[in-house]
């Protein structure tokens, strides 16, 4: 931030840190600037000074050590005070959000930023979702799986109760990277909160299948498909979806598969997740034929398509009637 000048703090007696370690013989050699700024910040925090210069000092301290949450806490208290004092809380808060945008762009991995943002929005007299979407867009573009940014986005959507952009937004990220699990789970978050009709769920199933057609070996889209049936359709899997999944398994369930099957006799298949999906579906709908199919699917997973989890598949097989 411009305007920062250490000369504004000459009257503040620096508060040095003491670690309490008796053998602290080693002189503390971190940079002079860091030391100077932090020791003044410590003093101001201790005195509880809520002033423009204190605010500027926190900007400097945050620039030097963005993860120092104590300074963020202090800044929040300063802003609370100064916003009231200014007589224009909204204007003041907007200015603070502008500053925060800048810091955010420079510190994509820091998560204090997002909880600070939430805290500001809660005391902002006229918060707006429109104000939030651009920075969210930039930050997710920068790191499309950033857990904290996605969590903040969800918080925002709930805070403003505005789900209108969300499916489209998640779709834009899935178009960019069909493996983006954050975007897939964002769709589930939206679906769960918007009470979709049966028709809308069907459409969502079709959407998911199209994405699976593009990349069949994708755990996120298969998991989502399974989730749609479990959450909205009471696990009532239809013939069409079973046929759809079978397309990616080279009809291996028509083969005779037992534990002593030669691995080399099993063909390569397009998607082991399709086979997992089928195994799960067949295990859930009891009939002699389905149980037999589930058994074959688990055996094949264990033998060839996902051997690292053979203990899991053998366990699942043991649970079949």
């Amino acid at each position: 931030m411009s305007g920062f000048d250490m000369n504004n703090y000459v009257d503040v007696e620096p508060l040095e840190i003491e670690t309490g370690l008796p053998d602290e013989v080693c002189p503390i050699m971190y940079t002079d600037e860091y030391k100077q700024v932090m020791s003044v910040a410590r003093r101001l925090m201790q005195e509880g000074e809520y002033s423009e210069r204190a605010l500027q000092l926190t900007s400097k301290a945050i620039a030097l050590a963005p993860a120092f949450y104590t300074v963020w806490n202090y800044r929040y208290s300063i802003v609370e005070h100064l916003a009231k004092e200014s007589g224009d809380v909204e204007g003041y808060m907007n200015k603070e959000m502008d500053w925060l945008d800048e810091v955010t762009l420079g510190n994509p991995k820091n998560y204090q930023i997002w909880s600070y943002r939430q805290a500001l929005l809660k005391i902002h007299p006229a918060p707006s979702v429109k104000r939030e979407l651009p920075i969210l867009q930039i930050m997710i573009d920068d790191d499309t799986k950033n857990y904290h940014v996605w969590s903040y986005r969800k918080w925002c959507i709930l805070f403003f109760q505005d789900f209108t952009n969300e499916l489209t937004y998640a779709d834009s990220l899935i178009q960019r990277d069909v493996y983006n699990n954050s975007a897939w789970t964002h769709r589930m978050f939206v679906m769960k909160h918007t009470n979709p009709s049966k028709h809308e769920v069907r459409e969502e199933i079709e959407y998911t299948k199209k994405k699976i057609e593009i990349v069949p070996q994708n755990v996120s889209s298969w998991e989502y498909l399974r989730g749609l049936y479990e959450v909205f359709l009471d696990c009532e899997y239809d013939e069409e979806t079973i046929k759809f999944a079978e397309k990616f398994t080279d009809d291996i369930l028509k083969l005779d598969i037992t534990v002593d099957k030669e691995v080399s006799a099993l063909p390569n298949i397009e998607s082991s997740y399709a086979l997992e999906f089928l195994a799960d579906v067949f295990a859930k709908i009891p009939s002699p034929e389905n149980t037999n199919n589930a058994k074959k699917a688990y055996t094949a997973l264990s033998l060839k398509y996902d051997p690292i989890r053979s203990a899991l598949w053998n366990h699942k097989m043991g649970q079949l009637a």
Partner: peptide
């Protein structure tokens, strides 16, 4: 003894919780 002393020096009397370092919240 040193570690225990350091831990106790991290206690933040104002909040009642422990800070990660003396002088933090």
């Amino acid at each position: 003894e040193d570690v225990i002393e350091f831990v106790i020096s991290c206690w933040d009397e104002r909040s009642g919780g422990f800070a990660p370092f003396p002088g933090h919240d």
